[in-house]
């Protein structure tokens, strides 16, 4: 019983010592480079945010719009290639050539079928 009592006293003493060690806690201070590190972290976060905005714009707006844009561009290119203004104005072009170089168009009236023939 005496041994147990002594043991309890020893345990109590250890418990008290452990609790008293709290009173000797020294306050921990931030490192001198704390703000520099923080600033670097905030900067890299901003860069990532900007990159993710660009990615979002590319992924959600530009990329989906690219396919219809290409289709429209292809159709437009096709129309432009098929459109030949010289063919439409061929007569005017020939007349212009004739006038410029003093050419005369052959009289084709003899070869033209009339209603009587």
């Amino acid at each position: 019983m005496k041994v147990q009592q002594k043991s309890k006293t020893a345990i109590d003493a250890e418990v008290n010592k452990a609790l008293q060690s709290l009173d000797q806690i020294k306050k921990v201070k931030a490192s001198p480079f704390f703000y520099t590190r923080l600033q670097q972290r905030l900067d890299s976060m901003h860069n990532k945010a900007s990159a993710s905005i660009l990615n979002a714009v590319w992924g959600k707006v530009l990329r989906p719009a690219l396919v219809p844009l290409l289709i429209v561009a292809s159709i437009g290119a096709g129309i432009l290639l098929g459109y030949k203004p010289e063919a439409v104005n061929r007569t005017a072009y020939l007349n212009n050539l004739i006038e410029t170089y003093g050419l005369k168009a052959p009289d084709l009236s003899n070869y033209t079928l009339t209603a009587a023939e």
């Binding site: 306050k27 921990v28 201070k29 931030a30 704390f34 703000y35 923080l38 600033q39």
Partner: peptide, 17 residues
Amino acid sequence: FQALVEQYKDLVVNTCY
């Protein structure tokens, strides 16, 4: 913001510790 960090950094670090 820097002034705020400088003023409170020890408080925050010590609490975290």
